[in-house]
Amino acid sequence: MSKMIATRNAYKDALVALGEKNENVVVLDADLAKSTMTYDFSQSFPQRFFSIGIAEANMTGIAAGLAAAGKIPFASTFAIFATGRAYEQIRNSIAYPNLNVKIAATHAGITVGEDGASHQSVEDIGLMRGIPNMSVICPADGPETVAAVMAAAEHQGPVYLRMGRAAVPVITEEEQKLEWGKAKLLRQGQDVSILTTGMMTALALQAAEILAAEGIEAEVLHLPFIKPLDEEAVLATAAKTKRVVTAEEHSIINGLGSAVAEVLSEKLPTPLRRVGIKDTFGESGKPADLLIKYGLTPEEIVKKAKELI
């Protein structure tokens, strides 16, 4: 059994480490510092932490101003409020002028659990990837989150960093650097490609095991970057296996599955199945139960893979 850690927990430590390294890093939060885990940074660097209160749109605009004056702001709240409540502030005040703001959101997806649909962001990848200049990163686990925070800080320009509430297994290397815009081939196979992002990558690896037991060799390509999308890696695996399944903790509309479909349909039409939230709102419940009810399981990935074979 691998180690379990929530990506937001990894964010906590990464942010403090980054604060030590770079004096220009400032952090903003909207009354959720103990949930988004920016609290530790606020204690380590009180001068560089701004408590904005329950005012996400204002927080986003303030972050833009800080960036316009040379700072590297990380603005944190739940994904639904970060991207939904302040969408147009992100678009017009941050992305249009290409300002160096990092929207570091936690509690993405339905694994938010008991708070229910109002708090379960399953459209945020779509909202963010549609904005010019914006980069979108969905790390799979703790170590990759740390690397993503560092990469986001080094990158000039707006970044959306998508993190979760629930603990997820560690499946990538403890010490790593993220290559900007690059996918990671986690498992080789020739029968079908599973393209995944975020917490679904661990489940895709399980799906590949199940398929292997049945004699089907799946390739697992993890895409921490939804944007810029590693088109080369997507095309290479599609050319190899000629069958693609995508999996994400997000709506099947506008997320990773859509991004992959866009590339493939233009450059290498390939049979495709999408695993994700099927254009519906979530509900309250335990994260594990919700994943089953909404079809975000290794079994669902296996089912979709078999549909193609």
Partner: peptide, 26 residues
Amino acid sequence: RQIDSILQGHPDMKGIPGVDFSTGSL
């Protein structure tokens, strides 16, 4: 707050008798 319950974590006007408006986002 249990799965399949009408009593969602935040008020859901379409499923709960007596709830007049859905809220949760302050």
